[in-house]
Design a protein around this nucleic acid. Structure first.
Length: 278
DNA sequence: AAGTGAGCCAACCGCCCTTGT
DNA sequence: CACAAGGGCGGTTGGCTCACT
């Protein structure tokens, strides 16, 4: 006898996809700045968005969070990416950690659209002029760069690896070492680099860079003209005094003061609130 | 002016890891 | 221990823009 109730699968909520509208951006930004994002899956519901949590997270991380740098990457940033990619491979998030204000997605896109070709061309030239020194010299450089005993791992690298694929061989074979190298690099949170920037007198990777506050209006946004670009020194000066860190290591701003150049309405509506989560 | 191809980049997809139950 | 849910990450896609023909 079966009264088996046919369990209807829960109807999947229809999520909106595609480009974000300025209204959606505002909703998400205002919500997160006000309440934070403890649980991404609940953010769109509470913020009144027809998006899934992942989409919201991505939008926040890549475009809406404060402190993102936009625009052309500096030569120094390029070099950093190339070097780190050499060491880490396609670990975009780890590379992005060393480039304050840049996102993994941005770096990844930049790599695929521009840097990759550049590196290949450079290597072709190098390969034409030199032969087998590259790996050995890199290994040597890495060894000398640290007294960490873990670097002994380098001794185990199979030097018989075909040198014609030097770049890729390095990224793949050096994984263990990469981890060591990575661990030796300081992790820097957004709020930390912001603070460091200030301490360093506003000098960052590229002193000519402008910081774009996190209004997140991208190229598709009708708000693009309102993008707030201010010199980083001003940005940091105005923000630093307001940095507060709570016992849970969550850094937030209090009593945010803005530069005259910035339209306060555009920045964040909820700046009227006492605290803004980062 | 219209068509076309290439490049760029925002966003999605799917896998993996972590955490909670 | 097993399972589910959530989050993070890298790969990939698709739409837009622009230069060229």
């Amino acid at each position: 006898m079966g009264f088996e109730i046919e369990e209807k699968p829960k109807p999947k909520p229809k999520y909106r996809k595609g480009l974000w509208s300025p209204e959606e951006d505002n909703k998400l930004r205002n919500y997160i700045l006000k309440y934070g994002h403890n649980c991404w899956s609940s953010v769109p519901i509470k913020a009144g968005l027809q998006r899934n949590g992942k989409s919201c997270r991505l939008r926040w991380i890549n475009y809406l969070r404060p402190g993102l740098k936009r625009g052309v990457l500096s030569k120094h940033e390029e070099d950093t990416i190339i070097t780190l990619h050499h060491m880490l491979g396609n670990k975009w998030s780890q590379i992005a950690q060393q480039l304050p204000g840049r996102t993994d997605n941005e770096i990844k896109n930049y790599w695929h659209s521009y840097l990759k070709k550049k590196v290949v061309e450079t290597n072709q030239i190098k390969y034409a002029t030199s032969s087998s020194e590259s790996i050995d010299s890199l290994v040597s450089t890495l060894k000398n760069s640290s007294q960490d005993p873990n670097y002994a791992v380098l001794e185990n690298i199979d030097k018989s690896t075909p040198k014609t694929h030097s770049n890729h061989s390095i990224s793949h074979n050096y994984n263990t070492t990469n981890d060591v190298c990575l661990n030796s690099l300081p992790k820097l949170l957004f709020a930390e680099w912001l603070s460091l920037d200030h301490v360093n007198g506003g000098s960052s990777i590229n002193s000519n860079d402008t910081l774009v506050l996190g209004n997140g209006y991208d190229q598709n946004s009708s708000f693009q003209d309102d993008v707030m670009q201010i010199q980083e020194g001003q940005f940091c000066d105005n923000y630093h005094d307001s940095l507060i860190q709570n016992p849970a290591n969550e850094v937030y701003y209090s009593q945010l003061q803005m530069s005259n150049q910035v339209d306060e309405n555009d920045l964040v509506h909820s700046m009227n609130n006492d605290a803004i989560y980062v």
